[in-house]
Design a protein around this nucleic acid. Structure first.
Length: 514
RNA sequence: GAGGGCGUAGCUCAGUCGGUAGAGCAGCGGCCUUUUAAGCCGUAGGUCCGGGGUUCGAGUCCCCGCGCCCUCACCA
């Protein structure tokens, strides 16, 4: 590409920045910087300020042989404000810990002053000098050095507005992160939440493992997988939809407590709570049951809430104030059902009538429907709505008929040993007493496959397959176990008060540009 | 998948009834050594998302398309 053609296409604002960059280079400075020793964060530099040292400097600064007691600091960041007063330039420099003012005086720092004159908003610079306070009380580095970090050829978003355009925020997260400090804060919290979850699991003796993300069969959940191909073996592969069946194999092998925090991939729609790749914690506890893992989840969520709230355990989510200190509420599925409809879910006749009234055009289909399925239709319509969104709540005792991969309750085989945690109306974690009888599991697999012959499309046929190796593993003998799955993205949403999953994912799925 | 909203300067946004394209910030030139959304003087900047149509005339009205957002539906 010829230089002239290239220049013709360059936006005027970029051309001006290129000219400033080249002028800095002409001063003998590398506009893209190099290694710098002794950098500290802006927050740390700010903390070095001392009023006493300032006072001593103003009292005796002009005396010969004066030893300046003010701390020195060297910081680096983006230029977010730039006020040129002629022979004194004020800069605001932003790093991950916040903004800090830097003053560059022509008299006190002639070489840095030359560079400051050539700086543009958005440039990365390094500044060092004494930490002092201006007469208006702003902690400031009075520069004795200014060095280039990286030239920004791109004009930044409006300095006080920040970047509003959500599409640019997601597509160019690198701009969003520095231009909108709230964005960086969410992802710092996310990192701390995940670290805290991991630490608690380790403290409780869970071993962190990594199981295949590329699988020859995509099992462990009912979802459409992404399909890919492996050249070396010339085989079809699936991106995993869940790690469940591999983690259970590890229980068979004798690992007593395992967990994995990693990505799942589901080839389904996108909305405020769904992204095609998302992060899931799954944990399994041999010789535990649904109660064991409910207690685990409650501890994990409370612990993470403490981390985010600075120990208070109370956090806002939209209009709600959610208190994580109290024991999470537990409500039986049947209880919510009865509260919503005024009759027990065992009353199949009334259930059928009620559903027909709600969906008069589907009356024929409803007549043919299995009672437990129509109960669940009704439940999803009004049952979950009975929950208080401000109170973290486990829904327990799901009907066994809608929980095919869960053990029935020993005390009542119509109910399943399953509980789902809801916070703010969002389902964030299911819990199960896991099935470990190979014959029962095999029968469930066959039942799932059978349903496919009627009505389901060919695409679904291709990925609903029978996992023979998993049955083989269960035949070796898997201890009884409790298992749970926690949607990390949704947990982060709730704890950081973000309304959409995209705001807690650094690079959410977007349609490609052009 | 259905419905609705949005797309205008680098950024944030106005744009009335269809009548020559606007502001603030950023930029450029000038002045200024304690500014705080610095100030003052001057100045430049547009594929109005793309394509077609109606009209004497379209940012504005109509049609098609693209992207994003919202609501609903689908989805263990």
């Amino acid at each position: 590409m010829s230089e002239e053609i290239h220049k013709e296409e360059v936006h005027k604002l970029e051309a001006q920045r290129r000219a400033n960059r080249d002028a800095a280079a002409a001063l003998g400075l590398n506009p893209y910087g190099s290694r710098v020793e002794g950098l500290i964060a802006n927050a740390a530099a700010r903390a070095l300020h001392s009023d006493a040292a300032d006072a001593e400097h103003s009292a005796h600064g002009k005396e010969p042989g004066f030893a300046d007691p003010r701390a020195k600091a060297r910081v680096a960041g983006r230029v977010t404000l730039l006020r040129d007063n002629g022979k004194l330039i004020w800069l605001q420099v932003r790093d991950a810990t916040g903004d800090l003012q830097v003053a560059v005086s022509q008299r006190d720092c002639p070489s840095g002053f030359q560079l400051a004159k050539l700086s543009d908003l958005g440039d990365v610079i390094v500044a060092g000098g004494r930490v002092m306070k201006t007469k208006t009380g702003e902690v400031t580095i009075w520069a004795d050095e200014v060095l280039p970090g990286a030239k920004s050829l791109t004009p930044p978003p409006a300095k006080h507005e920040g970047l509003h355009d959500v599409e640019i925020r997601y597509r160019q997260r690198y701009v969003d992160l520095w231009a909108n400090p709230e964005t960086l804060q969410v992802f710092e919290l996310r990192s701390r939440i995940v670290a805290r979850v991991r630490r608690l699991l380790e403290q409780r003796g869970y071993l962190e493992v990594e199981t295949p993300m590329l699988q020859t069969l995509a099992g462990g959940a009912a979802a459409r997988p992404f399909v890919t191909h492996m050249n070396a073996l010339d085989i079809k592969l699936f991106m995993r939809i869940a790690p469940e069946l591999y983690l259970k194999r590890l229980l068979v092998g004798g690992m007593p407590k395992v967990f994995e925090i990693n990505r799942n991939f589901r080839n389904e729609g996108l909305d405020k709570q769904h992204n095609p790749e998302f992060t899931m914690l799954e944990a399994y506890h041999a010789f535990g049951d649904v109660e064991t893992v409910m207690e685990l989840t409650e501890s994990l969520v409370r612990d993470a809430a403490m981390e985010v709230s600075g120990g208070k355990g109370v956090l806002p989510f939209g209009d709600l104030t959610i208190d994580y200190n109290k024991p999470f509420r537990r409500v039986a599925y049947g209880e919510l059902f009865e509260k919503a409809y005024g009759f027990p879910m065992t009353d199949a006749g009334k259930s059928r009538e009620t559903l027909k009234k709600m969906r008069p055009n589907l009356a024929a289909a409803i007549d043919a429907m299995d009672p437990s399925l129509l109960v669940n239709e009704l439940f999803e319509e009004k049952g979950e709505a009975q929950l208080d969104h401000a109170v973290p709540t486990f829904i327990t005792d799901y009907p066994a008929a809608i929980s095919p991969l869960t053990r029935p309750k020993p005390s009542n085989p119509m109910l399943a040993d399953r509980a789902d945690l809801f916070i703010a109306g969002m389902e964030i974690a299911p819990h199960y007493t896991e099935l470990n009888d190979p014959d029962v599991q095999e029968a469930k697999f066959r039942e799932q496959l059978k349903g496919l012959d009627e009505g389901k499309n060919a695409e679904e046929q291709t990925f609903r397959t029978f996992d023979h190796d998993f049955i083989r593993a269960l035949k070796v003998g898997m201890p009884p176990a409790g298992g749970m799955g926690l949607g990390i993205d949704r947990l982060v949403m709730i704890l950081t008060n973000q309304r959409t999953i995209r705001d807690v994912m650094l690079f959410p799925m977007m349609r490609p540009e052009e």
